[in-house]
């Protein structure tokens, strides 16, 4: 989509960020036709579209966007395990959105302030992601501080996905940000939202043994293979197909 940059692109970082956006976009797209209300269906689809646009720019920095999206094998994807997790119930989707969009917003804010290869895209995307983050926060507050049933589900979802959140702050080659500062800001922001939503901040481990997180190295969870099969089958069955 964009012209080739003059300086070499940090391929590893572009793939990591691009795959995060692509995979989460696909997961959110799975809600089409299934969301609890029409407005939410439209909201999730619009967030998916924003992410897809970001993925196209990032993957195009590395190579052909279609080849990268549709012809890579599972082990070549560099996305976080968090974004590939199945949608679950609506609370799981919102918890995943809260964790990821807060991370993406903080990260893109940093990247936009720098002068690296990602500054241009980050400056544009950070404005879109601010709406994603706000959407997730508002829903976390409504579900957490809602009925007994919604609170229980939101609590369960935030706890279930907690172990995937440490991976976001692993170093990525070519991503020049202060990860420990990013992590501290993330913990403060997410903790603040959860507490306002009357939820308990999960206490389980976020990194180290017995936690998830090697997506950046190409190790993915079981459901990712099935997601890829669905995402890639049309392009693989009909190479070069277009609308």
């Amino acid at each position: 989509m964009t012209a080739a940059p003059a300086t070499p692109v940090p391929t590893t970082a572009a793939l990591a960020l691009g795959d995060d956006a692509l995979v989460l976009s696909h997961r959110l797209g799975e809600w089409a036709g299934h969301a609890p209300v029409l407005e939410e269906e439209v909201a999730l689809a619009n967030i998916a579209l924003d992410l897809l646009g970001q993925a196209r720019v990032l993957l195009s920095m590395v190579g052909d966007e279609d080849e990268l999206a549709y012809l890579r094998e599972e082990r070549s994807f560099r996305n976080l395990q968090l974004v590939e997790q199945p949608n679950g119930d609506f609370a799981h989707t919102i918890a995943r959105q809260l964790y990821f969009s807060t991370y993406q917003h903080l990260l893109y804010t940093e990247l936009a302030a720098g002068d690296g290869q990602f500054a241009g895209l980050a400056a544009k995307a950070v404005k879109e992601v601010a709406y994603h983050r706000d959407h997730a926060e508002q829903w976390t507050l409504r579900l957490g501080d809602g009925t007994d049933a919604s609170r229980e589900r939101m609590q369960r979802a935030t706890a279930a996905l907690w172990r995937f959140t440490g991976e976001m702050f692993q170093p990525v080659e070519g991503l020049d940000v202060d990860l420990s500062a990013l992590e501290a800001a993330w913990l403060e922001a997410v903790g603040g939202v959860l507490r306002r939503a009357t939820l308990t901040v999960p206490e389980g481990p976020r990194s180290g043994a017995w936690t998830a997180g090697a997506g950046r190295q190409g190790v993915h969870t079981e459901s990712f293979g099935r997601m890829l099969a669905e995402m890639q089958h049309l392009h693989r069955s009909h190479p070069g197909a277009s609308w």
């Binding site: 917003h105 404005k127 601010a130 983050r133 706000d134 926060e137 508002q138 409504r142 922001a189």
Partner: peptide, 13 residues
């Protein structure tokens, strides 16, 4: 406030 009467992303710039 948790109702959605506000506008614009609260987390925005």
């Amino acid at each position: 406030p948790t109702r959605i009467a506000d506008d614009g992303p609260e987390t925005g710039s």
